[in-house]
Design a protein around this nucleic acid. Structure first.
Lengths: 329, 329
DNA sequence: GCAGAAAATGTAAACGTTTACTTTGCTGTG
DNA sequence: CACAGCAAAGTAAACGTTTACATTTTCTGC
């Protein structure tokens, strides 16, 4: 295999000089630089990163832990991470943990044995605690799922406020019996959004309709349909449904339709996340949008900055949400 | 930083013995093994993979090149790759190329400088050719987008046959004026599916309705709507639409509805890929399913087997597609 | 033209493993 | 009892870089 030695011989210089040319470090005469660059091109040389990694003890790789990347919501975040990381000379190791603490243990190995420089974790608390319990503090940041008091840098939105805003929007449109379909309570987003929902109702002197909120472990279409159908069968019937994820909302929309009712006239619906298919259903889904790409970019930026300067104070970044008003509410 | 030396000292053996214990290689007495393992646990030692990588000149990393990560169709494939790779002790570096040859150049660097052992490419031909033009043949396999004659191992489905089957299904249901909405012709899948469409029509002595097939660079809901609307305005009107991607099909469905027509009675619709939201629209979408997870698993398996034995003959693997009959056709 | 400073280049060690080769210690055999 | 043979352990080189330090070359001002 070709190495820096061949280049040095070809160019008639020492390997130190070749290294300096590659890294733009130290002083090297223009004429020498040209000789070396010519040799590099002639030989098609490319520095072995395995060796460089060992010597500099950094891999310029970051680990991204995702609970389930067939969930389209994470795609935007991951794109943000990928883009920002690349701009800063890093690459991304992506792992689907299935929100399973055991599976995650394997990945923490990667961090311990220096295969990656740091990690971004989108997993719930239960999984994140594993990262925290490591003897030597490992460099990582929490994204979307976070605990402001944990001493771990985080990036996310104010889920309680976002949910409250969504509910206030419904109240502003005259709705009074607002039901909620909640998510897996292992996730912080689920209980924060529930909290926001209850706060907004309380502010307006309202109470949740009977049976609300209803939770589900799998925030998908089928559960949205099922739970909404159950909610529609109680009397007095709710006049709005706030769902903590778009697939749930779309399922609920279908349930309303199948019950012979109209969206939004009889039951208004608001979702959460603004996934692509929110505009592919009729009526189009009103939903709370998170700045997914920017969440990812910020997480990557925070992590890489900490990598470069471990003494940096731990910071939390709260990004703004946005209510996208369409036709379903 | 702790290294194998500390473990060796703690256990009172040489570093070679520690290495043998870690790797289960060579002969080591049971009592010695225990001493070493005790030392490893006491110190919380974990072998530095950067060093191991350099010494063994392998990273156990595979690069996965995806044209667009937010396209839900790729998520299943990537999950398949990830799962299979992990079972075999590999991890996955995921990169979103945006189907852009220039962006991909960066990633080929990773292959050249030994940062990754091999690659799986889901990108179109135009991008793949970059991988091929490298001086030293790089280990990679093509997935979904492939050219059987290129001498590169591949995994995919028979897109022409799958499209033909879909069209035959429509013909079998009595449809005669079957229009098609095609994709970006830079992608092999797009022209193969078009070929299959034309073949099936020809078999039955039919010709494409006027204006069909129509192509689009962005196979999304909006373009599906736009192109279907155009198709519906010509007379005699088509009685079926075959779309090469589900978002296109869903858009077409909406266009049919907005034109005051019914799916499937007036216009039947068949999509392609069986993405999750195919069951979230009404009527549910009839579509051609690819075994996404198995495609990914096979690609990973083929690549890793070649990594272990570079002399392996180049092979192509054709997986079966499946027509999922729902209500839209 | 020369001392001394500054710039350019070279030398060699180090990063933490794996592994070929060597050494040690033991067992069984003739 | 000498010694072949083998198992177990150790020694040291190698992987391909980066970089501290040493050395050589070039430049500057007088």
């Amino acid at each position: 295999m070709m190495s820096i030695n061949e280049v040095a011989r070809e160019a008639g210089v020492s390997i130190a000089t070749v290294s300096r040319v590659i890294n733009n470090s130290g002083a090297v005469r223009a004429s020498t630089r040209e000789k070396v660059e010519a040799a590099i091109n002639a030989l098609g040389y490319s520095a072995n990163r395995l060796a460089r990694n060992l010597r500099t003890s950094e891999s310029r790789l970051i680990l991204v832990l995702v609970p389930d990347y067939s969930n389209t919501f994470y795609a935007g975040i991951v794109q943000g991470i990928d883009g920002e990381a690349r701009r800063r000379g890093y690459h991304m190791l992506l792992c689907d943990t299935g929100a399973d603490p055991d599976a995650e243990r394997t990945y923490i190995e990667l961090l311990k044995n220096r295969m990656v420089d740091g990690a971004i974790c989108l997993d719930p608390d239960s999984v994140q605690s594993l990262l925290g319990e490591q003897p030597r503090a490992l460099p990582w940041v929490a994204c979307c799922e976070f605990d402001p008091d944990s001493g771990i840098p985080w990036v996310g939105i104010d889920n309680a406020r976002a949910a409250a805003d969504a509910v206030r929007f419904l109240i502003g449109r005259g709705r009074r019996r607002i039901a909620m379909i909640g998510g897996d309570e292992r996730f912080m987003y689920a209980h924060e959004r529930r909290r926001g929902y209850l706060t907004a109702l309380a502010e307006a002197g309202l109470t949740p309709p009977q049976g609300s909120p209803l939770d589900t472990f799998s925030p998908d279409f089928d559960d949205g349909y099922r739970l909404a159908a159950r909610m529609l069968s109680v009397s007095p019937r709710c006049d709005a449904i706030f769902a903590v994820a778009d697939p749930l909302a779309v399922g609920a929309m279908q349930a309303v339709h199948d019950a012979g009712l109209r969206v939004p006239e009889d039951v208004a619906i608001v979702g959460f996340d603004n996934v692509p298919f929110a505009t592919m259903v009729r009526p189009r889904l009103t939903t709370v949008a998170q700045p997914m790409k920017r969440l990812g970019e910020n997480a990557a930026r925070v992590l890489i900055e900490r990598l470069n300067d471990p003494e940096l104070p731990v910071s939390g970044t709260m990004l703004e949400h946005d209510i996208i008003v369409r036709e379903s509410a």
